[in-house]
């Protein structure tokens, strides 16, 4: 009998545990999710604290809304699930507002525009994106990015390497295992600068896209607040200041090469 009772009490205990853990709302803190692996937008400073353009943007937003801000570091492809299950309130993680994503979450007005371009091996016979859609070509992408989605949809003849880390994708190109890595302009430029002997950057974007702040569907009040903040922040020169602080070198280089800058 004691054994049967023991089983019963364990079952009840587990049920209680589950019911106690699920509803966790009501906190006024604004929880912002981002992957701190994309400098200078999302990164950590020397002492491990979150830093970067997106972090400053989140703090300014919190100030404007009068809410304390908590930054949560979440892997990029876990951000939307975390938002949908209520673990975070906003995504500010250099996320492109695509129509596929817009089916499961809402986006603010765009705050930045950039484009997909190519980091190719020094001797790879690739001059543009069209050269990649050939049998025998290998394309590296980072999992869950718009480059990944683009390659899966448009580069059907090439073989695709799906990698977790940006650094691994760059290494694939450096070692000649992949012909090209599809990523955004700024990162491609930086990766090329770090590996000038083994890579080339083809910075002309073949698909332009814009970044926006993600939030749960059906939250119109928050969306209006965020959009108002973004408009005010742009008007008061906030984005220019962030660009000067974090992206000075890129800003110069892109102006010299004649590509429009991001903000």
């Amino acid at each position: 009998m004691s054994r049967a009772l023991g089983f019963l009490s364990i079952a009840v205990f587990i049920l209680v545990l589950f019911s106690a853990a699920s509803p966790a709302f009501a906190a006024k803190t604004l929880v912002v999710g981002m992957e701190l692996a994309y400098p200078p937008f999302e990164m950590t400073d020397a002492s491990g604290r979150p830093d970067g353009v997106s972090v400053q943007l989140a703090r300014e937003l919190g100030k404007a809304l009068g809410r304390p801000v908590e930054i949560k570091n979440i892997a990029f492809d876990g951000l939307i699930p975390a938002l949908k299950t209520g673990k975070i309130d906003l995504i500010i993680s250099s996320m492109t507002a695509t129509s596929e994503r817009a089916r499961s979450i809402d986006f603010s007005d765009p705050y930045l525009s950039t484009g997909l371009c190519l980091l190719v091996g020094k001797d790879a016979p690739v001059a543009s994106i069209a050269d990649l859609d050939q049998p025998g070509r290998t394309v590296a992408v980072k999992k869950g990015t718009t480059g990944h989605v683009y390659a899966a949809a448009h580069l059907k003849k090439a073989s695709m390497l799906v990698l977790d880390k940006e650094a691994a994708a760059v290494l694939e190109v450096v070692q000649g295992k992949a012909d090209a890595f599809i990523y955004d302009q700024m990162s491609t430029f930086r990766n090329y600068q770090r590996n000038p002997e083994t890579t080339r950057a083809i910075l002309k974007p073949f698909q332009t896209e814009s970044w926006a702040i993600g939030m749960r569907k059906g939250n119109g009040a928050l969306k209006a607040q965020v959009n108002r903040f973004l408009a005010d922040f742009r008007r008061s020169g906030g984005f220019e200041r962030l660009g000067d602080r974090y992206l000075k070198e890129e800003k110069e280089s892109f102006r010299r090469m004649g590509y429009p800058f991001f903000f």
Binding site: I80, A140, K143, V149, A152, V162, A168, E172
Partner: peptide
């Protein structure tokens, strides 16, 4: 092995998650 882009079961499921946002 997904970290060296071996297209095995877990990586493929993660890719489906990345395309569909249905974790």
């Amino acid at each position: 092995l997904s970290i060296i882009a071996v297209s095995e079961f877990t990586l493929n499921a993660q890719e489906v998650n990345a395309f569909t946002y249905s974790t």
